[in-house]
Design a protein around this nucleic acid. Structure first.
Lengths: 68, 68
DNA sequence: CTTATAGGTAAAGGAACCTTTACATATTGC
DNA sequence: GCAATATGTAAAGGTTCCTTTACCTATAAG
């Protein structure tokens, strides 16, 4: 899943370390999410959403699978 | 985190087993989410959101922590 | 060149998510 | 009562998420 975390963070002039402190995770977690190593938990996705004041859907881009 | 999965599933007249098959997880996972044992991954939250055609924010209710 | 800053990443450990198999309870229909 | 259906849950195992500690590279400043 793609995400706009790095872009949004930089728009706000924050370093990974500052952002990590703000959302109460480690800097490594921020780095891993930004570089696409893994997705955040739903809980953390909400925290990031709250921080940027944007819906989850505008930060994390989910490729909808066909059918369902 | 609270969620409206059980309510939305029942509104659509689905059993846990049918719903689980539709979103490609085990019935136990559906049960665990509905009974609040744990939250879905962000990926699964998106899949559920797609299935119900509702934003994640209208299915999963996040208690926003103060400050940030 | 040396120092400081920003960010990527590895390793080890723990917590959370999800699976399969299996059993238990409650409800419904006969 | 008996069988079938729907849901809850436990156990064991695998994967993903997140932590701390630590090191590495790149860039910029002096």
């Amino acid at each position: 899943m793609e995400n706009r975390v790095e872009q949004l963070r930089k728009e706000r002039g924050l370093r990974q370390e500052e952002f990590a402190r703000a959302i109460r995770v480690s800097r490594q977690t921020v780095s891993a999410i930004e570089t696409g190593k893994y997705n955040p938990s739903l809980e953390l996705a909400f925290t990031i959403s709250d921080f940027f004041e944007l819906p989850i859907e505008e930060i994390f881009i989910h490729e909808r699978k066909d059918v369902l």
